[in-house]
Design a protein around this nucleic acid. Sequence first.
RNA 1: GGCGACGUAGCCAAGUGGUAAGGCAGGGGUCUGCAAAACCCCCAUCACCGGUUCGAAUCCGGUCGUCGCCUCCA
Length: 458
Amino acid sequence: MIRFTNTLSRQVEEFKPEGDTVTMYVCGVTPYDASHIGHAMSYVVFDNVKRYLMWKGFAVKHVQNFTDIDDRIIERANRLKMTTDELVEKYINMYCDDMRDLNIIPPDVYPYATREVPEMIEIISGLIEKGYAYEAPSHLSEWSDVYYRVSAKKDYGKLSHRTQDSLMAGARVESGEEKETPADFALWKGAKKDEPSWDSPWGKGRPGWHIECSAMSLKYLGERIDIHGGGEDLIFPHHENEIAQTEAYSGAVPFVRYWLHNAWVKMGDEKMSKSLGNFITIRDGLNKVGGDGLRLWVMTSHYRKPLSFSEATLEAAKNGADRLRTAARTPSEPGDGGIDLNTFRERFAAAMDDDLNTPQALAVLFDLAKEINRCRDEGKGVAGAQAFLLEIAGVLGLKLEEGGAAIEAAPFVDLLVQIRTELRAAKQFALSDRIRDGLAGLSITLEDGPQGTTWKQD
RNA sequence: GGCGACGUAGCCAAGUGGUAAGGCAGGGGUCUGCAAAACCCCCAUCACCGGUUCGAAUCCGGUCGUCGCCUCCA
């Protein structure tokens, strides 16, 4: 029985999808800059959700958007003297490269906000008809804005557990806006001079931030979806507003059955974020510790707890991944070594069932790795156990592959290793150590075992 | 001010009533020509105070400290 913490109820609930296929929507990025490892955390977490559901036999349909138009994109593009399309393309490509190297399974659909504008206009029009939204003049544009009328939906605030009164106090009104009340939010923004814009019943303009997710989830997944994921910082206002819009428009309640949110990455005591400038990019992280290392780093902490970043925690994750790789990939004879794999399978599943407890799941992998190593040391065949380790590591998105970049040089390395073996047989240790040290300087590590010498690239 | 989270060994981090998983680092062994890898052993009473209980890291009350959201944010 799989259980998830549902932000809506604040309870751990048994997961039961509504139909045969689990429908899952995850909030994507706004591609105006390189993604940092905080983003990596979120996408690794939801990739694990998806992989685990698939391992348990569920079919999963996963949709993730690109917010390819918003204030930051327009501002950045203007500054760099690029079009918004050029800017967006550059960072989407970078994002996709990052995801590939993190071994993230791509979503079934990757919709772009700018390609779904007619659908959004239809929803906004529907909301106006039903009295949930209103057109208002803008002082920043010759065209109108459209706002969602928060007071029209009684349960507004149910996700973030806030009352409408408390929201009024903190709400902000930009100069130039003509909202009925401060908590109302934009569905449509009238175009300012020289901004990208689309035609609409309210003149030229562009969609507000929240409406795209409503339009895309409705279009690709239907009125009611099983899982909606994202970072904890999206709970308010983004997801709160998304619920309000979507439920008001479709009438299907609840719009989302399980709301899952991951916590943030902290640098020291602070949240990693672009505005604080205290981030490192996914690419930097990948270069330092590789895809497995980064994923394992994310998984050492439960997804709903803040994840501590430091060079030391990242390095520890890399060393842990190396340990698993050695256990899984050191050649061995067929057999399970007498290890009770079913017990490990059950422990792994129990940990993952329990609100995706990856720290405990990892503990199972490390325990299994230790058993494999011990049995192999005793001369037992453990290839079957290794295959199982690779299987459950794969559920966590870990590949545990040997580095392959030196493949072209392999014949030369093999030759040196062979010569060194002969030198060692002749007790020419000074020379043989020179070969080992020299190769170490080229990131090739030699290991002398009972069956001869093996090597690997770091 | 409103809502919420957290404080477990040198570092990271599970565990939410029955006497502390796992990883990294460190120490001691085995193996090795020496290493490396691997294996074995060692390394915490859970911020503090009070309470409930046969029994609490785990429940209740309080104190101190840290952080997040409420504005763009994974």
